[in-house]
Amino acid sequence: MRIGELADRAGTTTRTLRYYESRGLLPARRAVNGYRTYDENDLRLLQQIRTLQDFGFELEETRPFVDCLRAGHPAGDSCPASLAVYRRKLTDLDTLIGQLQAVRAQVGDQLARAELEAEAQEPGGPEPRCELTH
């Protein structure tokens, strides 16, 4: 198949495919007429890359999965290098989740403090001026 058909089937653009080719993630095969040619294996590579990117993987992190598929394995994550990338990504995600939980706790504490202060104001007293609304 030609580049336009592959892009359509993969749900991406020809520009993206040329970029992947320049990065060595997609093979650069040419027909006698000079057109790029692709097959179903190339579509599998693209689907693997797109799935991983949907999960938040950087493009370079997809390389071990692509290499694994190119080596003839039935799945891109059946090689040790791919499993190592999964492990690193899970560690990164766990760190990020921890950071988000800490921020959430701080925001919750600030909300609780602000609500207590608002309740403690004298009824009928002047409303504090909010710089954002006035």
Score class of each variant (00 low, 15 high):
T133V: 13
A120S: 11
Y20E: 02
N33T: 11
E60P: 00
R15L: 08
L93V: 14
R70M: 05
R50G: 01
G124V: 05
R9F: 00
V66D: 00
R30P: 02
G108Y: 03
Q121K: 04
I49A: 03
E115S: 10
R50I: 15
G98N: 03
E131D: 14
A75W: 03
D42V: 08
A120C: 04
I49M: 06
E117R: 14
G125H: 07
P126V: 13
A112I: 07
R23A: 09
R23E: 12
D8E: 13
V103Q: 11
P64Q: 05
T62W: 00
P123A: 10
L59F: 15
G125T: 14
R30F: 01
Y38I: 04
R15I: 05
R63H: 02
R87S: 12
T51Q: 09
E119F: 03
P128I: 15
H73W: 11
Y20M: 04
L69Q: 02
E40S: 12
D77N: 15
L52I: 09
A102R: 12
L52F: 09
P126H: 05
V85K: 02
R63C: 03
E40K: 10
L45E: 04
Q99P: 00
M1R: 09
R36G: 04
C68Y: 01
A105H: 14
I3T: 08
R9V: 00
A75D: 11
H73D: 14
D39C: 09
L111Q: 13
L17Q: 05
G4D: 04
Q53I: 06
E127S: 14
G24E: 04
L25D: 01
L116A: 15
R18N: 08
R70H: 03
L26F: 04
D42N: 06
F57M: 15
E40I: 14
L26N: 00
L83R: 15
D77M: 06
R63I: 01
R87M: 06
R15M: 04
A120F: 06
R50S: 09
Q48E: 15
G4S: 13
A10F: 06
Y20P: 01
D42H: 02
L59C: 09
S78M: 13
D92W: 03
T12A: 03
